[in-house]
Design a protein around this nucleic acid. Structure first.
Lengths: 208, 208
DNA sequence: AGCCGTATCAGCCAAAAGGCTGAGAGACGG
DNA sequence: CCGTCTCTCAGCCTTTTGGCTGATACGGCT
């Protein structure tokens, strides 16, 4: 039996080394390539195919992890991709899964969990860290709390600290409409003021 | 010549493995212990002394890195401690240096930079990643922009989304005083609204 | 055709936030 | 002792925000 080939994508050298060392303990898993950015990952995949791509989401400059996942899936629909990141923000999880990630692991996951996720990914199984899964579940269970595209757009600008007037100008809508959207956003986020909405959004939705 | 003994403190197994692998390439540096939390780090140091402690700041539950640094320095004033973390937020840097860190490295630092920092730390030299140093410099250059302790306390609560009234109740001061502090905070942060202040604080001051 | 979700807008009113000026009490260092 | 910093508070006025009610329009689904 041949080993499962893996491409590591992470802008931190130490994380790549650590993963490589960790995965090296498993005879059926072989790290055959590394990339420090989304762009580099695409190049590597052009050269040699791998069974699983293990990818960090936050990646300094350039293409972020989500975009990299989309690009990879555009070229190769069947490519198995595992997200391996520090954060478990709601938005990141949803976007990553949406983009085509097969699994979502946190960097403090146990080694066995990581091995299992890689082995599962090649078989098309979806593996999630427990806290990640529970967040996803919550999203699905509460469709009322999912923001509409327009609301999400507004919230994103809101976290830049804009006033209602500025929001209206940016989005080419009246201030009245801005207030309507905000009221809906507050209700969905379970807050009562814009300050709390911003705090919640930045912390929980990963809008950095 | 005996090697420089190192204790790694990081809650992520992969990061510890990666650092261990990286440092293992240097004959004069020896990782002799690891810890996954601040508490564990203190225990390890009780057992065996090391030349340098390499510590992450963000550490899941329990004691955070800053607190761990303070505790270690309480017990052993001379202990060399290097911060090795993902973020370069102004507040973290100042607090870490204040707590007694000898150096501050980012996780995407080049290997040579990391080696140099460890060798420098045992000699009492202070080594910083370039972006970190420039931030520190900016802090020192603009004393007008440093928040007073009370202002920082208020800002921290502000980022929780509290109203002026709530802030007053929490801090046992009148709403008028809250407004005075806020005006000063806005001026120092260079913003005009509480929304922008929250956005700035969370993003730039690392108040997550 | 009828319903629902989404996006748009208006007007009214109360509450909150922000700008401005002024001021007293302690602490700390020169 | 004096100046400076910090923290505290007050009053006044304007702007912004938030709550409420109601309305129009478009697209998709049944």
């Amino acid at each position: 039996m041949s080993a499962i080939t893996v491409l590591l994508v992470d802008d931190h050298l130490v994380v790549r080394s650590g993963l490589r060392a960790l995965l090296g303990t498993q005879p059926d898993i072989a790290v055959v390539a590394e990339a420090a950015s989304g762009e580099e990952a695409l190049e590597r995949l052009e050269q040699d195919a791998v069974a699983v791509v293990v990818m960090d989401l936050a990646m300094g400059a350039g293409m972020d992890g989500i975009e990299a996942i989309q690009r990879i899936r555009e070229r190769n629909k069947g490519q198995a991709i595992l997200v391996f990141t520090t954060y478990d923000s709601d938005a990141d999880i949803v976007r990553a899964v949406d983009a085509g990630a097969m699994g979502y692991l946190l960097k403090d996951a146990a080694p066995d969990e990581i091995f299992a996720a890689i082995r599962g990914a090649v078989q098309g199984k979806s593996v999630m860290s427990a806290p990640v899964a529970s967040r996803l579940f919550q999203q699905l269970r509460n469709p009322d709390e999912i923001l509409t595209p327009r609301e999400a757009e507004l919230l994103s600008l809101l976290t830049q600290g804009l006033s209602n007037r500025e929001l209206g100008q940016r989005l080419f809508i009246s201030e009245a409409t801005v207030k309507t959207h905000l009221a809906h956003i507050y209700a969905k986020l379970g807050v009562e003021t814009r300050a709390a909405a911003i705090a919640t959004a930045i912390r929980r939705e990963g809008m950095r």
